[in-house]
Design a protein around this nucleic acid. Structure first.
Lengths: 140, 140
DNA sequence: TTATAACTTCAAGTGAACTTGAAGAGAAGA
DNA sequence: TCTTCTCTTCAAGTTCACTTGAAGTTATAA
């Protein structure tokens, strides 16, 4: 498969694939002329990478996990750690979500006068909850 | 209050405060010599900013929300939209967390042979779930 | 008065994960 | 053969929310 085929099948841009190769996350089996040729195994590996990214691992983390073992045998403790981390995120986001929902319907004259809202503000101000979304998602 | 006082009370660094002022998120009431002087109202505003950040709003979003109204009257629909977005994030993260937990205890010889894991891989590969944590948090 | 700590500005740097652009090479089709 | 399309490399740019550094100013303590 050439790079555009892999890009299509993996939903990952060609430039990102080259970047991944440079970082050692994937390999091409050789070249046809200048062009990279990939084995279809790379698709599994890319799906694994996408999964890792979706779980919040950095590319460097993923590189470590995938290095030196194929088929990839992923450290179970690392998975549990990440699961716990996700759990914390979930709790934080849930708190936020509920606070926002309340604020949206709250009848206090100003949000600043709503005790619930102020409690949430206090939490945020004290650093108990931190920004997390990589997709700012509020941009128009 | 001078900037270091505000920094201490708000848990936000002085350089960040200057940056916020430059972006129009906060204002100082004047100068004492070169030094900025802040009114204590700025603390509420900063708590609001921290809350917005924690909810996943970008500084530009927050600037919009806070502009042209004090006391700040925040658009209720915007809050609901963000709450829904958080809800989607929560569902995605929950899926991930459960998948990771399973993977950690799964008895399949390789994760690649576990059907649950493969289903998750497929979801990630098809872009149904995207990276979200700004805290990569897996770095040692 | 003098030292110094705390402020000031402005430009540039950081990190993560890519993307973009320029310039060039080579394969496939007509 | 010629054209065109897709690939190649390499350097630099992008985004966001700040931080850092250098050089300068000033309020306050001794």
């Amino acid at each position: 498969m050439d790079i555009s085929e892999v890009a299509k099948r993996s939903n990952i841009s060609a430039s990102a694939l080259r970047y991944y190769e440079e970082k050692g996350l994937i390999e091409s089996v050789g070249r046809r002329g200048l062009r990279r040729v990939f084995h279809k195994n790379v698709l599994d590996r890319l799906a694994l990478i996408s999964l890792g990214r979706a779980a919040g691992f950095s590319l460097d983390d993923i590189a470590q996990m995938l290095s030196a073992n194929s088929p990839p045998q992923i450290d179970r403790q690392m998975l549990l750690d990440k699961a716990e981390e996700l759990d914390r995120s979930i709790r934080r986001l849930t708190l936020m979500r509920d606070g926002l929902k309340h604020a949206a319907v709250c009848s206090a004259p100003s949000h600043l006068e709503c005790p619930k809202f102020r409690r949430l503000m206090g939490l945020a101000a004290s650093g108990l909850i931190e920004p997390s979304s990589k997709t700012p998602a509020g941009k128009k």
